[in-house]
């Protein structure tokens, strides 16, 4: 140890990685995130602790807002039910979106010839280029009581099978899934296409059937990508209110009941109440929930391979 320390001091060589260019190139990114993300975020979190006097916010460090919110968790405004509704909408939506996307990605990576894969990927990502709002209106047309699906069902004489999805949280989830899948496609494509093909050959050669190879090689090696994609989708869904209001109709029905999602509640408070700091405190709670989702996913990602599983 001592020897190597001396040797290091004796011959100080700057590798390309240690160049001052590195700091220099990082500067714009650091400045950008500092000014437009970290700074506002800090202010935003602080703003949640302000008071309101004569209809205008006053800088303070008061817990009144949070006390009011937590007092109204399961009574009055029912924020707790809103959070529950949000999770009940978002987590299944994220799981369904990830499962569907994973199947599509497996089909692209293992079913499409290599030179066509880029095109296939492009086509699956294409919906991302149309406006999210427009996509939601399109879904309204499809799902509405007299919409595309129901008209078709009536036309072919299956009138009694008409669906009533509009203004339910199922419709909300449909909108969200359509929103996140193009992003998940990219995450999962990178994961699956990076799995060494030789490992699949090895598995087959060692006696594994196709299904065993999927279960014992492809699936475990997709783990990190799948967890990333579920948590990513959950966080996006938790923060979205457009699908909840346009397709879910604000307080869309679900197993939990006719309760709006938490972002929906934040939006209506923002529109109606004059207590902006309290609305901000609600949003801060949403941010904390997202961070918890992120923490759980990072925890799940760290390999469980520490001990010996025999």
């Amino acid at each position: 140890m001592e020897n190597s320390a001396i040797a290091l001091r004796g011959a100080k060589v700057r590798t390309p990685n240690q160049s001052w260019l590195r700091e220099f190139c990082l500067l714009p990114a650091v400045a950008w995130y500092g000014v437009f993300f970290f700074g506002p975020l800090c202010f935003f979190l602080w703003f949640g602790f302000w008071r309101v006097e004569d209809y205008s916010p006053v800088a303070d460090f008061s817990l009144t807002n949070y006390r009011e919110i937590f007092a109204n968790m399961f009574t009055g405004s029912n924020y707790g039910w809103g959070i529950a509704q949000s999770l009940w909408v978002s987590v299944p939506a994220a799981l369904i979106a990830t499962t569907c996307t994973y199947l599509v990605v497996l089909a692209i990576v293992y079913g499409v010839p290599a030179r066509r894969q880029r095109l296939a990927l492009l086509l699956t990502v294409a919906p991302f280029w149309s406006s999210y709002l427009l996509r939601l209106y399109a879904w309204q047309i499809i799902l509405a009581r007299e919409g595309a699906i129901n008209s078709l069902l009536t036309a072919i004489g299956l009138g009694e099978w008409r669906i009533a999805l509009m203004y339910t949280q199922i419709a909300t989830r449909i909108g969200l899934i359509h929103y996140v899948t193009p992003i998940l496609i990219i995450i999962l494509y990178v994961t699956v296409s990076n799995i060494d093909r030789a490992l699949i050959d090895v598995s087959r050669n060692l006696g594994a059937t196709r299904l065993q190879t999927f279960r014992k090689v492809i699936l475990p090696l997709s783990r990190v990508g799948l967890i990333t994609s579920v948590s990513f989708a959950t966080i996006i869904c938790l923060g979205d209110f457009l699908s909840g209001s346009l397709l879910g109709g604000g307080g869309g029905t679900s197993l939990i009941g006719r309760v709006p999602t938490f972002p929906d509640m934040i939006m209506s408070e923002y529109g109606s109440s004059s207590n902006l700091p309290r609305t901000t405190a609600m949003a801060s709670i949403l941010v904390v929930i997202m961070l918890i989702v992120l923490a759980i996913s990072i925890r799940l990602m760290t390999p469980a391979l520490k001990g010996n599983r025999r």
């Binding site: 060494d196 030789a198 490992l199 050959d201 090895v202 087959r204 050669n205 060692l206 006696g207 594994a208 059937t209 065993q212 090689v217």
Partner: peptide, 16 residues
Amino acid sequence: IHRRPTRLVWQDYALF
């Protein structure tokens, strides 16, 4: 493939 009695050892090992 999975029932063949021939096993291959890969050039770059291809360990899991």
